[in-house]
Simulated assay, not measured.
Amino acid sequence: MAGDAPTSPIATLTSSAPDADEHRHLSFVSLPGWIEDDHRAALRAFRKSAERLFAEATPLPDRLPGLEAAAAAALRLPADPSPAEARSFFESYFVPAPAAAKGYLTGYYEPVIEARREPTDAFSVPIYRPPAEAAQTEVTDRVPACPDRAAIEAGALAGRGLELAYVRDPVDLFFIHVQGSARLSLGGGQHMRIGFAGKSGHAYTSIGRLAVERGYLAKDAAGKAGLELWLKMHREAGRRLMAENRSFIFFNEIVDLAPEDGPLGAAGVPLSAGRSLAVDPGFAPFHLPVFVSAPPLAGFGADAFRRLMIAQDVGSAIKGRGRGDIFAGSGAEAGKAAGEIRHHGVLRLLLPKASA
C-alpha cells in the first residue's frame, strides 16, 4: 500500500536520533579505538560482501547510494593492502553516522559436532532439511503451517525423506539451531557444512531467560556453557524446557565453502571471525560497516573491544536498534568465547558518503 514503505534505517539514524546534532560533524579520528583497529581485517570481510553485491542479480537498494562505488573500490585495491591503504579506503568511502546506537551484544559461533549421514543406535537425532511449509521468518499474521519443536521432535516430519544427518544428542542439535550453522564430522575424515535453510515460523523463545526466571540457573551462569550443562544434567526437564522454544530450524548442506571459510551468513557471505556481525536488518542493511565498542570481550583480548565489523547475518533473537551478535569463529574455543559475550555496547554505522 502506498505510504506504508518501511523507513530506511539510515534515514532513521541520520535524522531522528536524539543526539544527531551533537555528532553531526563526527570524524573518524574522534572514534576511540579507530586508529588502533586492524582495518585490513575489516577490509577482508567487506570484500566478501563486495563480491556478493556484484554477484547478485537484483539491484542494490535505493537507500544505499554509494555502497556500490565503495564495493567496487574495495575490489580494486591490492590483494594485500597496507594498513594505511585499508584505513584510507574506509575513510574515503564512508562517514560515521551522526548518532550511535546503545545496545546489547552477544556472541555466536559455528559448532563442530560429530554426526552420521545415516541413523545408528548412537546417532539417532535427525537434522532436517526444510519441508515445503517451512518459513523464512516468524509468522506473525497467521498460524504457522509447519509443526513446532515439540511436534517435530515427536515425529511430525518423520518418513518424508527430510533427514540430512544425525547427531547423538538433542541438546547438541538445539545449540546447532541457536547458532544457525555447523560443521559435522562424519567419521573417516569426512565433513559436512550445514547452514540455515528455513524455520518452523513459530516465535523464538530464549530458554536461557526462562531458566533464570524459574530459578534453574543464576543469571551469571546462564550463558551457553552453563545452560548446556544444565540441559544435559536434567534430561527430562531440559527436554520440556527446550520445547518451550517452539521455533525449529532447518538446514541444507553447503557444498561451496572452503575449509578455511566461516559459515554462510544470511547475506550469502562466508562469515569472518571477529569481523562479521548479525544485526536486525531494520537497523543496519546487509554489507554495511558498523564500528562496535564494548568492554573487553572473551576471546578478543584484555583491552576494550573497539573494531570495525560488517553486517552480514541476522538471528531470531537479534531484534531492535543496537542489538548485535558477534561471530566468534568455529569450534569449541570459539563457542566458549561466544557464550560469555553478554555485554552492553555501542554500535555506530558507517554510511556510504552518498547516503550521509
Results as ranks from 00 to 15, higher is better:
318 I>N: 00
63 R>A: 14
214 R>H: 13
186 L>T: 09
89 F>R: 04
9 P>M: 07
311 A>L: 03
12 T>Q: 04
75 L>N: 12
253 E>G: 14
263 P>M: 12
294 A>V: 04
270 P>E: 08
42 A>N: 09
290 V>D: 02
62 D>Q: 13
189 G>F: 08
298 A>G: 08
258 A>T: 13
141 D>I: 06
110 E>H: 05
36 E>V: 11
332 A>Y: 02
170 P>V: 14
38 D>L: 07
337 A>V: 09
133 E>G: 10
351 L>E: 03
316 S>Q: 08
100 A>I: 00
127 I>S: 06
351 L>G: 04
113 I>L: 07
296 P>E: 05
244 E>H: 07
154 A>S: 15
352 P>W: 01
130 P>C: 10
147 P>K: 07
266 A>G: 10
80 D>F: 07
314 V>P: 00
222 A>R: 00
45 A>L: 05
158 A>M: 09
170 P>H: 12
245 N>G: 11
341 I>N: 02
182 A>H: 02
44 R>Q: 11
355 S>F: 03
339 G>T: 11
74 A>D: 06
184 L>K: 02
228 E>T: 15
196 F>Y: 15
68 E>F: 03
267 A>Q: 15
57 A>R: 12
167 V>I: 11
340 E>F: 04
132 A>C: 07
167 V>T: 10
305 F>Q: 04
135 A>K: 02
339 G>P: 04
24 R>K: 14
308 L>R: 05
173 L>A: 13
83 P>H: 11
208 G>Y: 00
175 F>S: 07
276 S>Q: 09
342 R>M: 00
40 R>I: 13
226 G>Y: 01
145 A>Q: 09
228 E>D: 08
238 G>N: 13
158 A>L: 08
5 A>M: 08
232 K>L: 10
260 E>N: 09
50 A>Y: 02
